[in-house]
């Protein structure tokens, strides 16, 4: 019986296969060639940063006998003036910068999503208070305030991430609030309430999952923004501290000798650009995938 039904379906002239929301989104993303290529490059960079140090013959903290050597087969990215291998340093730096950026994005998204959902759901005074505070955070010069607060982090990567996230969640909260404001009037929320669902359940089970599209897109972009802030903080000397390293710290160490040891300046900078650029492209692809109606380039 089922056999014949399946055959009959296959014989039909136009067959339409059933697809879940996720499958549709993934298919739309895969059609965005630039985003897929960027994802591929980004994965390569991440593997390079996290697996590379296990395979590479030099450690980032190790002093080799070669001081200030230009890129060669032995040291593909050259060495620093005190003989450290730049390739090992860049691997370690990328690792630290990526770790900070990802944790920042996750923490900022979590805080911002809950903050925005509560504001949008309860409206009124709660909304006014929560959002005025978020607005205030948005007017703070992020880099400067992060630098001020980072004085206490002593170079710990996760504390730096928390500091940056503590200033970035406000953007997320505004996006989520906007989505929640329109969703809360929908019938399915009314239905959930009629069934006796508590506020917490409605917010976490019904509202937040429906805001997932814009939240994920924004979280992706946040990773790119966070990596720029982390490197900027480290560049000023308030982020990751020696003997550990990050891409920003590497650029800072190299900036006084760009003409004599250019490899120390260009390689870490290139990695920052590649990471931020690919993440932005991926974010673009995700935006189109989650919301096909709202194309980035309209017309």
């Amino acid at each position: 019986m089922t056999d014949t039904a399946a055959r009959r379906a296959a014989e039909r002239e136009f067959t339409v296969r059933e697809r879940t929301q996720l499958q549709l989104t993934v298919r739309r993303f895969l059609r965005h060639r630039l985003a897929v290529a960027s994802l591929f490059v980004l994965i390569l960079v991440v593997v390079f940063a996290f697996v590379g140090p296990l395979l590479w013959r030099y450690d980032y903290a190790q002093f080799t006998p070669d001081n200030s050597v230009a890129p060669s087969l032995k040291h593909p990215f050259g060495t620093t003036e005190d003989g450290k291998d730049e390739l090992a340093l860049v691997m370690r730096g990328t690792q630290q910068s990526v770790k900070v950026a990802v944790l920042t994005a996750v923490a900022a998204t979590a805080i911002g999503a809950v903050w925005g959902a509560i504001a949008g759901f309860y409206r009124g005074l709660v909304d006014a208070l929560l959002m005025r505070f978020a607005d205030l955070v948005l007017t703070l010069p992020l880099l400067a305030v992060a630098a001020v607060l980072a004085g206490n982090t002593r170079g710990s990567w996760w504390l730096i991430a928390i500091v940056i996230a503590g200033l970035q969640w406000a953007i997320v909260s505004r996006i989520v609030r906007g989505v929640v404001l329109s969703l809360r009037e929908k019938e399915f929320i009314e239905a959930a309430r009629a069934l006796g669902a508590s506020d917490t359940r409605i917010i976490f089970r019904h509202l937040l999952p429906n805001a997932i599209g814009p939240v994920i897109v924004n979280a992706t972009i946040l990773v790119a923004v966070a990596i720029l802030y982390e490197t900027a903080l480290s560049f000023l000397g308030f982020g990751i501290k020696a003997p550990d390293t990050s891409l920003g710290l590497l650029v800072n160490n190299a900036r006084t000798a760009v003409d004599t040891r250019p490899w120390l300046f260009y390689f870490p900078g290139l990695f920052i650009i590649v990471i931020a650029l690919t993440i932005n492209f991926i974010g673009d692809g995700l935006r189109d995938a989650f919301d096909p109606r709202q194309q980035r380039i309209r017309q």
Partner: peptide, 22 residues
């Protein structure tokens, strides 16, 4: 636009400074 968006401000500044010196 995408490139400048992904470029660290301090890196671009050092680059311009070096270009100026050159």
């Amino acid at each position: 636009g995408f490139l400048f968006l992904a470029m660290p401000a301090f890196w671009l500044a050092v680059l311009l400074k070096e270009a100026g010196i050159w």
